[in-house]
Design a protein around this nucleic acid. Structure first.
Lengths: 168, 168
DNA sequence: CTTGGAATGTCAACAAGGCTGACATAATGT
DNA sequence: ACATTATGTCAGCCTTGTTGACATTCCAAG
């Protein structure tokens, strides 16, 4: 596996040509389109967008989470998130309960309907991910996750790891 | 196909729990933020957005490409792309030359200034990718690419592979 | 040569979803 | 009492996507 043919993948020093990096960059760009394609279709039918999906996903992951916490995970402004949350609450997909200890806080939950949409969306996205994982094999999956984790910002990685621990 | 060694493409060998898939999904979401963060900062300083980056990237990759080709790679409407291209041409980053065989076609090229911005953007993005690749190791890189390629839509994968062959 | 269609450009209008700034309210903590 | 925090809301702006309509230019087929 040393210097035999192919692009220099170098074992010890790991030479990375611009060409290899470029392929990684383009792979990331094109793959992200596929990654969002299925949910996007479902969302479009119901008049929602990716922003709604993100909110629904993370409320589902951490039921009872506060608005502030959601803000820091999503990395958007409260005005932007509020617009999305308001729609979801008006449509009865999300409900907010005033905190018991701290009554300023709103704790967010998915309603039955909300959970149903969440399932529809994540089923589609998991199906795509499952296909990719199966096709690529278990070693590839582990490499995939390693590279992605190394690509995150430090702050972002914190959120990711906190969520990773709290396995559903 | 025999079930011996190699990437197990069979289902029997590869159990994928919803939890594993969820981690992959969240990794993809958070990593994409890191992936775009550096270019986004540079672009914001100059009053451009991701759409400009994408146009610049693919014009650089295929100098002389036509508007129509760019449209199909980017998957947006001509009106949307046109707005971006117009800005870039007004600012002297991109120039379009009328086709010699088919004079309806516009062939797109980066000017010196355009190439300079392209380099700045891709340097930043490559740096991030290089860091992630180094940290994860060569095997992870290969897995990363395999999973991403398997995640693309068929149409998208066509574009990706066509670009991959034409190494810069 | 005429005509259909392709490639492109352009105008207008609209929507999602980011952003900032400003302000209100309520509750908490010092 | 007072400053701070958490949240909501209004107004306005930007980018980037969308549709629809229409003009132009040019190639190619009849």
């Amino acid at each position: 596996m040393a210097d035999s043919g192919g692009p220099p993948s170098g074992e010890s020093l790991l030479f990375l040509t611009d060409d290899q990096l470029r392929k990684g960059i383009e792979a990331m760009f094109f793959a992200y389109r596929g990654f969002t394609a299925d949910p996007d279709r479902i969302l479009a039918e119901k008049g929602y967008g990716r922003a709604h999906h993100r909110a629904i996903h993370f409320i589902n992951r951490s039921p009872g989470t506060t608005v502030n916490n959601l803000l820091s995970i999503l990395g958007v402004t409260k005005q932007s998130l509020n617009r999305v949350l308001r729609t979801l609450m008006e449509d009865g997909l999300v409900e907010s309960r005033i905190g018991k200890q701290d009554k300023r806080e709103r704790h967010l939950f998915l309603t039955e309907t909300g959970q149903s949409l969440e399932r529809e969306l994540s089923d589609a996205q998991r199906e795509r991910m499952r296909g990719a994982f199966r096709q690529a094999g278990p070693d590839a999956v582990s490499g995939f996750r390693h590279v992605l984790e190394a690509m995150m910002d430090a702050d972002t990685a914190r959120h990711y790891k906190r969520l990773k621990e709290v396995g559903s």
